[in-house]
């Protein structure tokens, strides 16, 4: 859906559901997922429908993901960090995660 204008800036290695993804400095989690061509980042707690980032400006909450073991983080507001573990959030969040 998106490509990078230029592969500039230092690469940052993160994992998405255990898979290695190369992000760039300046990426948010949501942007890194889009750049990596990941189709959806969560399924809804109501019907299990797949969702992907929608607004990228912190209002829609469709980019909720589990980041480093903590669920329901807004992917579009969180800058990537080296070694960050991002997980697709399936349905309702599990308490304690």
């Amino acid at each position: 859906m998106f490509k990078r204008l230029a592969e500039k800036g230092p690469a940052i290695a993160i994992t998405v559901d255990g898979r290695k993804v190369t992000a760039r400095v300046g990426d948010t989690v949501a942007a890194a997922l889009l750049a990596a061509g990941i189709d959806h980042c969560r399924t809804t707690p109501v019907t299990g429908a797949p969702r992907a980032p929608y607004c990228l400006m912190g209002v829609c909450f469709d980019c909720l993901v589990t980041v480093d073991g903590v669920g329901s983080r807004q992917g579009c507001l969180i800058p990537v960090r080296e070694g960050m573990k991002v997980e697709t959030q399936l349905g309702r969040r599990e308490a304690g995660r």
């Binding site: 707690p45 109501v46 329901s72 349905g91 309702r92 969040r93 599990e94 308490a95 304690g96």
Partner: peptide
Amino acid sequence: QIVVTERLRPF
């Protein structure tokens, strides 16, 4: 007053 959380799996 009441505080309410997001939806969670049953615990």
